[in-house]
Design a protein around this nucleic acid. Structure first.
Lengths: 259, 259
DNA sequence: TAACTATACTTGTCTAGACAACACTATGCA
DNA sequence: TGCATAGTGTTGTCTAGACAAGTATAGTTA
């Protein structure tokens, strides 16, 4: 169950009608064909990592296109991290050393529904509180000032999957407490109310608190995957959330497929 | 070094002097300036999510550049996920709903050295073994065929940080067992030997085995962050690794900053 | 030999124009 | 009224040429 999707999202590039007569096989745009040609060579080892690849002028001659078209194809490969270019020298097949696959974190509702399952949320706490020291710091508000606090459990097909402990800055979402979170997730609501400028994540392992273990119907000794998220809107922290998932029911999957 | 072709009778119709002469303020290329202009507007709410943004022709007039230049700027913003375009309609500020932050998993050596700390590895097992059923499946080899098995502990400033349990397909790296893994990490060596085509990750929480707990000098009841990684080179699995990190010493951090 | 120079080749960027595909709107006709 | 059609504006793509800037090398000079 892939929680995360890979980063190389292929755009819905529609296959535009070919302008030339010889477009029997490939209905792709020329720059797409060149990209595909180069990607194939990279994938099959024609140009192993570090190898010098064809110059733009060579590709211009080979494909009978203008340099702009070749340039766009190569530039997009560069942006995808598949080739490296040096002005005055040439284009080289990238060392895929830094296997940094990027994992995409999504809203829990989208995630569950995307798997074709049923999402249900139960609200266990929804109130205004005085900010403790750590919360005040994270939300950049004064100590003991009023903040909103919610505690939800998200279920997938009836099984508790995530315990969401969230603090919200009232400045950003004054009506937060009047929302029915069995209908819309806090994440979704906050996105509508306060556009996001920056988000900080951390992923770690840990043990649930006794209350969290009870809410998640799990042993207090079982490890959890804990995602902490803090979102900021132009110098104003919006919210801080601690998302606790039982290890046995949750893992992050990802596939890195460069070519 | 002909900087100017003085003899030329053809006059430059539009001065491209800005980059060389007036580079004091903006040394950026025009398409970069346009990107920056649009990003600023997106960040400051000039175009809130979903809003219609200026058309290419408007930007052409505003910046006195050609359509290709404007097009490149907008296309790159589109590739970054900041705007959405519809042919025949226009360009719209993207809903950053899908807060796809990206978590990057790196080689442990790079990671530790990147923090300015000292990396040291100890080897606790390095031998050929008969593949068990689960390993045979993951490496796509026959049951009981020979595979290489290493067990390393990576230390950051002397503190055990990661226990690396790895199985390697001998087809891809026949000399694997002769490598000194106190000098080069298995990840790094394998990258050189077998270029990577595909990698599958999973991140989960769990408990260490008794041996892992001992090697990591931690309690067997303390949770761990466990990364499993399987890399494939064109239909041939290269290696499967289980990377165990004590929860108290390791977490994955990430920042999402779209603009 | 060592340093400089001219040259060739590479990537990086931009122009002005062109045609195609698509969405929307206004208009005219039945 | 309802429908087809033409027109307008948008994005998507490509061309042929140009200049700029960086690198490497061969040749020349001190």
């Amino acid at each position: 169950m892939p929680v995360f999707s890979q980063s190389s999202t292929i755009k819905p590039k529609r296959a535009q009608l070919d302008r030339s007569v010889a477009g029997a096989i490939s209905a792709q745009a020329p720059f797409e064909r060149i990209k595909h040609y180069l990607k194939s060579g990279l994938a099959t080892g024609v140009w192993p990592p570090g190898a010098l690849m064809p110059s733009e002028s060579e590709l211009v001659a080979q494909f009978s296109v203008s340099r702009m078209t070749v340039g766009r194809a190569i530039r997009e490969l560069q942006q995808e991290g598949l080739v490296e270019r040096t002005q005055g020298v040439g284009t080289f097949a990238a060392e895929l050393h830094r296997v940094s696959s990027s994992l995409t974190i999504r809203d829990i509702h989208e995630e569950i529904v995307g798997r074709g399952h049923v999402h249900r949320a139960t609200v266990h706490l929804k109130r205004a509180e005085r900010a403790s020291a750590s919360i005040a710091k994270r939300l950049d508000v004064k100590l003991n000032s009023v903040v909103f606090h919610t505690l939800l459990v998200h279920h997938e097909n009836g099984v508790p999957l995530q315990c969401e402990d969230r603090f919200v800055n009232p400045i950003c979402a004054p009506d937060y407490l009047s929302v029915d979170f069995t209908e819309v997730t806090p994440t979704h609501y906050l996105f509508q109310v306060a556009p996001l400028i920056e988000a900080q994540f951390s992923v770690e392992a840990g043990l649930p608190s006794s209350r969290e273990a009870k809410l998640l119907q799990m042993s207090a000794a079982e490890p959890c995957l804990i995602v902490s998220r803090r979102t900021v809107n132009r110098d104003t922290p919006i919210t801080f959330a601690r998302l606790v998932h039982p290890a046995s029911r949750y893992q992050i999957d990802s596939v890195f497929k460069p070519y």
